[in-house]
Amino acid sequence: MIVADVPPGEWAAGLRAGRFDVGCGPFRFRLRSRLAALASQLHTLYGLYPMAPAAGAFADFHIRVDHPPGLRRWLRPQVQFRTDGEAPFEPFPADTALPFLEWGSNWCVATRMDGYLLLHAAVLERAGRALLLPAWPGSGKSTLAAALMFRGWRLLSDEFGLLRPDDGLLDPFPRLIPLKNVSIGVMRRFAPQAVIGPVFPKTRKGDVAHVRPSADSVARMDEPARPAWVVYPNFQAGKPPRLVPLARERSFLKLSGNSFNYERTGLRGFESVARLMDTTRSYLFEYGDLDAAVATLDALAAA
């Protein structure tokens, strides 16, 4: 069963009671909320994702997003993110519940899932080989990942490279892709078929809207991929695409610095990155146009 199989009213009621678990990649999320707007947004954007009744089953994360007690429910309404009964963040404005849920859920993975080496990177796959796009905010990573997805690449993740230390494969975790500010309009023009949620203005990261991953990306989220390329994107408006090979030593330093848990995993993390450098090619990538960027990376994959 997928989320869209549940009628919207039944979905909202189940969300209020915490009766449903939603699967994404290797993780199972038990969600709970009384917010009608959030229930509707999740039903649309997570409609393709597998779900199951929560009764008696194990869930990796128990997450609740609701109004905090007191006057804040009515005066300048806010919402509180809770996981396993704890509230790790200050409340957010109530009209940003979906971005709050997404950021909080990512925080749960980044702070708890040390069975993986967690790379801060978008990951996409073509013909069984994976492209990692490690980058800091503002580099155009999410926009480029969404563009590649709409041009035939399978999205494994926009935020996490889940690297398995035992065999070096990457597990999928295809959550919603958050686009910010001008990237929202850019993606609407680039991929008119994209399912994009509402725009949330004036969040801590500016205007934010979420892109639903492709049906193929969600349907195949139990298929790992073998890493082949590590490409560090850097958007520069108006610049032609420029792909420059990067020495393994420099790539090692950049990639280990783009990890959520490299220091926590110790020797296992070091060996995982070292093996990744031995089995992939690394590049710096400047681009200023999505069509040209996609063509460049398509050619890299074809070669």
Rank of each mutant, 00 (worst) to 15 (best):
I2R: 14
V3H: 06
P8R: 11
P8D: 06
E10Y: 02
W11P: 07
L15V: 01
A17T: 12
D21G: 13
P26E: 11
F29D: 00
L35Q: 11
L35V: 08
L35H: 09
A36V: 09
A37I: 11
A39K: 03
S40L: 12
Q41H: 14
L42H: 10
Y46K: 02
Y46G: 03
Y46T: 02
G47P: 01
L48M: 04
L48E: 08
M51L: 08
A55C: 00
A55M: 02
G56L: 00
G56N: 01
A57H: 14
A57W: 11
A57M: 14
F58N: 04
A59Y: 03
L71E: 15
R73S: 08
W74S: 07
W74A: 09
L75Q: 14
L75H: 15
R76G: 08
V79E: 05
V79M: 07
Q80G: 09
F81V: 09
G85I: 10
F89Q: 03
E90C: 02
P91G: 05
P91L: 08
A94L: 05
P99G: 06
F100G: 00
L101G: 01
L101I: 02
E102R: 00
N106G: 13
L117T: 10
L119F: 02
H120S: 09
A122E: 06
L124F: 09
A127I: 01
L131Y: 04
L132G: 13
P134D: 13
P134I: 12
P137S: 08
G138A: 05
T143G: 03
T143N: 05
A145P: 06
L148G: 06
F150H: 15
F150G: 12
F150I: 04
G152E: 13
W153E: 03
R154Y: 00
L155W: 05
L155H: 09
D158N: 11
G161A: 08
L162F: 10
G168L: 01
P174C: 13
P174L: 12
R175Q: 12
G185H: 01
G185Q: 04
M187E: 04
P192F: 11
Q193L: 09
A194V: 09
I196K: 07
P198S: 02
P198R: 00
P198W: 00
P198C: 00
V199P: 04
T203C: 05
D207L: 00
R212A: 15
P213W: 05
P213I: 03
S214R: 11
A215I: 03
S217Q: 10
V218C: 05
A219L: 12
R220A: 15
R220K: 15
M221T: 02
D222G: 12
E223K: 14
A225G: 04
F235T: 08
F235M: 10
A237T: 14
G238D: 09
P245N: 08
L246H: 04
E249G: 12
R250L: 15
F252Y: 15
F252C: 10
L253M: 14
G257R: 11
F260W: 10
F260C: 06
R264W: 12
R264H: 15
F270S: 10
F270E: 10
E271Q: 10
V273F: 11
L276D: 07
L284Q: 13
L290N: 02
D291K: 07
A292D: 13
T296N: 00
L297A: 03
